[in-house]
Design a protein around this nucleic acid. Structure first.
Lengths: 325, 325
DNA sequence: TTGAAAGCGCTAACAG
DNA sequence: CTGTTAGCGCTTTCAA
C-alpha cells in the first residue's frame, strides 16, 4: 500500500507538502503540485481514511441503528443514506439485537468512529441513550421529548382522529384497531385519540383492539382474530402498511373480500400500500429521514439545513367505499 | 474522551499493560488487572476503534455497495448484516450512484478501511472491479465468471425452463416476458432458455417481451403495454417480485382480474409476493446473502464457513390456475 | 509479568 | 510557499 511518505520519497518533496495537495489545504506551488500529482498517479496512491480519521478526530460517518429489520427500514434508510452521501457522509448500519449491542454501537460516538447517530428503533432506556449525546448528536425516529435528542416524529393523535372521522363519514360504526407496543408514545397518542373520539361519538363500537410488539406476523395474527369474530369490525386501522398488507392477505386467504367485507387502512404510504392497493396515510417518513439527517448535519457542521414540518395526508391506493348496511 | 494513557496515569501502570487488559492479549497479573479494570470503569473508558484499526491495518468492517435502492436490497441486506454481526463484522452501506462513487468505495479496500466488499449491483466494468481484488476479497450478487470474485449467483436458465414447462402443463400457450437489462448474464440465460423452449415447442406464442434497465416503474410500464394489446398474453413472467407486484397492481387498476385475465409470476420469493399473493420462485436470495458473507469471511480469516448450493423452488403465494379456453 | 519505545498514515502548528 | 516536528490512540516487539 502506498502512503504519503512513498510519494514524498519519489517526488523528493516533503510529506507535509504532499499532505497539502492530497487534502487540498494550504498553498503549494504549481510546479511541486504537478510533480506530486504525477507521483500519486504513478504509485496509485489512495489516502488512508483511517489515519485521517484518527488525526482529525472524526470520521464523516454516521451510524444508523435499528434493533430489527422491518420493511419500512429499507425505504427509510434509502432516503437517509442518499441525503448523507450528498453531503459527504457515509453511513454504517447496525442491527442492534440487544442492549449490549446497542451500547457498543453508541460507544463508537465517544471516539468519533461515528460522528452522529440515527436511531430508527431503540432498545436501551432513553436515559442511557441520552447520556451518549455528550459525544455527538443523536436523532431518532421515535416520538420522544428529550431536550438533546432530535425526534423526527409526527404526532399521531390528530392523524388518528382524521382517520376515524373519515371512517365515520363513510358510515363505519364498528371499527377495529391494530396497535403497536404501548410503550411507544405515538401508540399512546393513537389510543388517546380513540378514547376521545369514542366519548365524542357514543354508540360506536371501537373496542376491537390488538397490540403487537413486533411487526413480524402482527397482521397475520390480528387477521386470524378477526376471522374468529362472529361480528367482526367493518374496518380495521393498522399501525403500519406492512401490517395492513399482511392483514389483508390473511383475510383473503380466509375467503374474505377486501374492502367489501372489511376495509383495511394502513399508515405509512410505503411501496406495499400501492402494490396491494389500500388506503393509507402518508406520515411523511421520507421527509422524516431527510430531516433527521439534516439535524445531524446541522449539529455537526453548525449549518442551517432546513428541518421541515410534516403534513400527513390521505393516499388512496385502493378504494374507500361507503359502508352498506 | 479518556484514553489508554489516562487510565495508565490513574492506575499508575504503564500504557502497554493497560493495552494488554483492554485487548485481552498477553499476561497481566491479577492484581494489576483489577486496578486497571477499576480505573477503566471509573473513567468510563471506551477503546478507540479508529486507532486500533490504524494500528492493526484492518477494520472488521465490510462494505455493502448498491448503485440504487430497490426493494430486495433491504431484505438481502438484512440477512447479510445479521450474518456479519454474528461474526463480529460491521457493515458500511454505500449507494454508489456513479462510477466515481463506486471507485471511491472500492478504494477503501486499499487501506483496509474496508476489509472486504459485497457488490449487490455494480457500475464500473468488471475489469476495473477485478483490479481491486488485490486489496481484499470481493463478492457479488451478479452472475459473473471471474476467478477472483465470488458470485452468489444461481443459473436462471433451468429456472426459466422450469417456469415455462409448468405454464405449458397448465395449458398456457401465449406467454409474455418482462426481462431485466440484457447486460445481465442471467437475463441472457433466461432469454436463451426461452429460445430453446420455443424451438422445442413450436406453435407457442412467446414473442411478447419487454426489457427494462431499472426496476422503477418497470412493472407499471410493462402492464400498460399489456393493456394496449388486442390479444395480450395469458401469463407474464416478471424478473422480480416487485416488478410482478407492480404489474398486477397496474392491471387491476386497468380493470383486469389477476390471475383470471392474466397469470403473473414473480421470481424472488420476497415479502411482497406473499402480501400481494402470486406464484413466485424462491431463488434463494437469503442463502445467497449468507453465502456471500461466508465467502468473504473465509477469505479474510482463512476459515471454512459453508458456502451452500442453491435449490430454487416454487412458492405459490397465489393461485396457479389451469388456463380455460 | 512488565515497561520503554517505535510506529500505523496522516495533519497542523510553527518556523523559516 | 515549504520542511520539521509533534502527535492522534493503540499494539507489539524487545529487553528487563
Amino acid at each position: 500500500m502506498t502512503t504519503i511518505y512513498d510519494i514524498a520519497q519519489l517526488s523528493g518533496i516533503s510529506k507535509s507538502t504532499v499532505s497539502r495537495v492530497v487534502s487540498g489545504n494550504g498553498y503549494v506551488s504549481e510546479a511541486k503540485r504537478k510533480r506530486i500529482l504525477k507521483a500519486m498517479h504513478d504509485l496509485d496512491y489512495v489516502p488512508n481514511q483511517t489515519a485521517k480519521n484518527l488525526r482529525r478526530q472524526h470520521s464523516n460517518t454516521l451510524g444508523f441503528l435499528v434493533s430489527d429489520y422491518f420493511p419500512l427500514v429499507g425505504e427509510f434508510m434509502n432516503v437517509f443514506v442518499q441525503a448523507a452521501h450528498a453531503k459527504g457522509y457515509n453511513v454504517n448500519l447496525y442491527f442492534t439485537q440487544n442492549k449490549q449491542g446497542e451500547r457498543e454501537a453508541l460507544d463508537l460516538l465517544a471516539t468519533k468512529m461515528l460522528d452522529g447517530i440515527f436511531l430508527m428503533t431503540r432498545i436501551n432506556s432513553w436515559s442511557v441513550i441520552e447520556s451518549y449525546q455528550a459525544f455527538g448528536p443523536i436523532a431518532t425516529w421515535h416520538r420522544v421529548n428529550l431536550p438533546d435528542i432530535y425526534s423526527a416524529y409526527l404526532d399521531h393523535y390528530p392523524v388518528y382522529t382524521m382517520i376515524l372521522n373519515r371512517l365515520l363519514a363513510h358510515g363505519y360504526t364498528h371499527i377495529g384497531h391494530v396497535f403497536s407496543s404501548n410503550r411507544d408514545a405515538n401508540t399512546q397518542a393513537r389510543v388517546r385519540a380513540l378514547q376521545d373520539f369514542g366519548h365524542a361519538n357514543p354508540g360506536l363500537k371501537l373496542s376491537w383492539q390488538k397490540h403487537f410488539t413486533h411487526q413480524t406476523q402482527a397482521g397475520q395474527n390480528a387477521a386470524k382474530a378477526w376471522l374468529q369474530e362472529r361480528i367482526p369490525p367493518q374496518a380495521v386501522i393498522c399501525y403500519s402498511d406492512h401490517v395492513a398488507a399482511e392483514f389483508i392477505a390473511t383475510l383473503r386467504e380466509g375467503g374474505k373480500r377486501v374492502p367489501q367485507d372489511c376495509l383495511v387502512i394502513g399508515t405509512d404510504n410505503s411501496q406495499v400500500a400501492k402494490l396491494v392497493g389500500f388506503p393509507t396515510v402518508d406520515l411523511c417518513f421520507r421527509q422524516q429521514a431527510q430531516n433527521s439527517f439534516n439535524y445531524l448535519f446541522n449539529q455537526l457542521r453548525n449549518a442551517e439545513l432546513p428541518v421541515q414540518s410534516l403534513h400527513p395526508k390521505w393516499v388512496d391506493w385502493g378504494p374507500f367505499p361507503q359502508v352498506k348496511n
